[in-house]
Computed example of a mutant assay.
Amino acid sequence: MNPTKKPSILLVEDEENLHEALRLNLELEGYEVTSSYDGIAALKAFQEEYFDLVIMDVMIPEIDGLSVIQNIRLTNDEVPILILSARNSSEDRVRGLKKGADDYLTKPFNLEELILRVQKLISKSKRIKEKTTLGDTYTFGGHTVNFKAQEARTKAGERIELSKKETMLLKLLIENRNDVVPREKILQSVWGYNVYPTTRTIDNFILNFRKYFEEDSRNPKYFHSVRGVGYKYAEEKEQVNKE
C-alpha cells in the first residue's frame, strides 16, 4: 500500500446535511471519502473499493446498517467499522458490537470526538496490519506450537494435540502479544459471527493453555484474563522467538 495515499473512508449516512458536514470535515482532516446514502449502495461501494474505515449509520434505507455490517464481516474481518446511531441503550451498543462494529457513537455527537475516534481506529488498524504474521511454528518459554499441524510440544517434551479453535485462539493471542484482545474480536475471529459462546467458554480455553504451558497455572506468566475487557498473551522481550 502506498504510504503517501490518503486513508479512505466509506461514509454511510442518509441524512444529507449531516452527511455533507461529516464528509467536509473528514476531507479537511486529510481523508478520502466515498459517500453512500443507503445499504445497497454501501455494499456495492465496499465490494468495488478498498477502505481503511467504514462509518455506518444504523437507520438507513434499503438495508439497515447492522445488516450491512454483518454482510461486510462475512468477507472482511479487518476493516474497522464505526457505528453512528440515535439509539443509545446498552442493548443497542451490544447488538452493534456483536454484529461486528469496532466502535459505537451515539447521535448527537461532538464532531471533535468523532474525528479522534476515526484517527484512533485507522491508526490501530494500520498497526495490526504492520505486525509480522506468524509462521507455521512459534516458540516461547521452551514450548513450541505448530499451528499447521495443530499441536504443541512443551518444555518437558510432552506432545499436545490442539483443537482447531484452540489453535486459532492461540495464534490470535500470540499475534497480538502484550495487547489485550477484546472478547468481541475473539468471538468474531475464532467463532464467527452467528455463534456466540459465553465468556466461560473462552475462559475454559485460557485455562487449557495455562495447564499446557504455565509452570504455575494459578499464577500465569503468559495467558491472562482481563476482567470485563478480554484476554492477553504476555511475553517479555527476552522470550521473543528469534527464529
Rank of each mutant, 00 (worst) to 15 (best):
20 E>D: 12
20 E>Q: 11
21 A>V: 10
22 L>Y: 04
22 L>R: 08
23 R>C: 09
23 R>A: 04
23 R>D: 00
23 R>M: 00
24 L>S: 05
25 N>L: 05
25 N>H: 09
25 N>K: 12
25 N>S: 13
25 N>C: 00
26 L>W: 08
28 L>E: 12
29 E>Y: 00
29 E>K: 12
30 G>M: 03
31 Y>Q: 07
31 Y>F: 14
33 V>L: 03
33 V>T: 07
33 V>Q: 01
33 V>G: 04
33 V>S: 01
34 T>R: 10
35 S>F: 02
36 S>Q: 07
36 S>H: 00
36 S>Y: 00
36 S>V: 06
36 S>M: 02
37 Y>F: 12
40 I>T: 15
40 I>E: 14
41 A>S: 14
42 A>V: 00
45 A>S: 14
46 F>W: 02
46 F>M: 01
47 Q>M: 13
47 Q>G: 15
47 Q>D: 15
48 E>W: 01
48 E>S: 15
48 E>D: 14
49 E>P: 07
50 Y>A: 14
51 F>G: 01
51 F>I: 05
51 F>L: 04
51 F>Q: 00
51 F>V: 03
51 F>K: 01
52 D>F: 02
54 V>E: 00
55 I>G: 02
55 I>C: 09
58 V>Q: 04
58 V>P: 03
59 M>P: 07
59 M>N: 12
59 M>C: 08
60 I>M: 11
61 P>E: 09
62 E>R: 15
62 E>W: 06
62 E>P: 02
63 I>E: 05
63 I>A: 01
64 D>C: 06
64 D>W: 07
66 L>P: 08
67 S>W: 00
67 S>L: 08
67 S>E: 14
67 S>N: 13
68 V>P: 06
68 V>C: 10
68 V>H: 00
69 I>A: 09
69 I>Q: 03
69 I>G: 05
70 Q>S: 12
70 Q>I: 01
70 Q>Y: 04
71 N>W: 02
72 I>G: 01
72 I>Y: 02
73 R>F: 10
73 R>H: 10
75 T>H: 12
76 N>W: 03
77 D>L: 13
77 D>M: 13
77 D>F: 11
77 D>C: 12
79 V>A: 08
80 P>K: 06
80 P>C: 10
81 I>Y: 03
82 L>P: 09
83 I>R: 03
84 L>Y: 02
84 L>E: 05
85 S>D: 04
85 S>A: 11
86 A>H: 05
87 R>K: 15
87 R>Q: 14
89 S>Q: 08
89 S>D: 12
89 S>I: 06
89 S>G: 02
89 S>K: 01
90 S>F: 01
90 S>L: 13
90 S>V: 14
92 D>Q: 09
93 R>V: 06
93 R>W: 07
93 R>T: 07
94 V>Q: 12
